[in-house]
């Protein structure tokens, strides 16, 4: 065991994440008895670990949080009947609840469902969806190409697909597949442009959408394929998705955003 591992295991034992019986802790303690470097380092490391543990755990709880949670999270009837802290519940009450729930579910099926706003993760899935499985776009807004794109792409409405593919949501977002030749690339890069009205995009993520395509920053989600750019123009949000190396998307952006002559 080296010095670095030794200090890690000593710290884990000190904070209770490992026990004195763990083989690694035994080895670490043996190492400590013979290693002057660790003997020098360990007291400071231990003090630092304890201070850090105390500081990280020290998060003030907002007053009234417990009461708000207990008020906002409805107690399930089925659970409360077997609870450690039993709540008064009668068979009749359970039956009434079940009846109300059935009625509510029935009613909701015929109620026009407002679609929840889409997040970037959901939009990012537009990269892996089969184009053939997407319906023609029949949305309630007029999708058009971003200003800079219009100089490089022709807009053919017959290519515009509806996304997400399922149910009533298919007109929420317009999805346009595209390809673009990049200098030095044997094949044109392929991507998908998603267009949606601003209010249909998750409010918490709207600040991520820059004012125009040029300013957008290449981003990606760990664990999801490809990279994306997100920006807004007028009342529309644009998300450009491209599979593979984020550098391809960055080059595509630079190439499209480069000023060009009128000739």
């Amino acid at each position: 065991m080296d010095c670095s591992d030794t200090l890690e295991w000593l710290e884990a034992a000190e904070l209770g994440q490992a026990t004195a019986a763990d083989t690694e802790v035994v080895q670490a303690r043996q190492h400590l008895t013979t290693c002057p470097v660790c003997q020098q380092e360990w007291p400071a490391r231990k003090s630092w670990a304890l201070q850090l543990a105390a500081s990280i755990s020290d998060v003030p709880i907002p007053s009234g949080l417990r009461e708000r949670l207990l008020a906002d999270v409805p107690m399930p009837a089925a659970v409360s009947t077997t609870a450690v802290h039993p709540r008064r519940s009668s068979r009749r009450w359970v039956l009434m609840s079940a009846l109300c729930l059935t009625l509510l579910v029935g009613l909701l099926q015929f109620w026009p469902q407002p679609q929840p706003p889409l997040t970037l993760v959901e939009l990012q899935q537009g990269l892996s969806v089969e184009l053939a499985g997407l319906p023609e776009f029949r949305g309630d807004f007029d999708p058009h190409l971003p200003a800079i794109w219009a100089t490089s792409f022709d807009f053919d409405r017959s290519f515009v697909r509806g996304y997400p593919p399922h149910g009533m949501a298919s007109g929420q977002v317009a999805l346009i597949p595209f390809q673009y030749p990049l200098a030095g690339q044997p094949e044109p890069v392929k991507g998908r442009l998603l267009i949606l009205p601003r209010q249909r995009f998750a409010e918490s993520q709207r600040t991520l959408a820059t004012q125009n395509f040029r300013q957008a920053q290449v981003q990606y989600f760990r664990g999801l394929p490809g990279a994306f750019l997100v920006w807004s123009e007028d009342d529309l949000i644009y998300v450009c998705l491209m599979p593979g190396d984020p550098e391809h998307l960055a080059r595509f952006q630079r190439s499209l955003a480069a000023p060009r002559s009128l000739t």
């Binding site: 907002p62 949080l65 417990r66 207990l70 999270v73 659970v79 409360s80 077997t82 609870a83 450690v84």
Partner: peptide
């Protein structure tokens, strides 16, 4: 008890809301 069902949601909130909040906050 072994069964999770034996612990009511009330008890779960009561016992763990602090940890949940601190973790979410960090």
């Amino acid at each position: 008890a072994d069964s999770g069902m034996s612990e009511s949601l009330f008890a779960v909130i009561d016992e763990h809301y602090g940890l949940v909040y601190r973790y979410a906050s960090r």
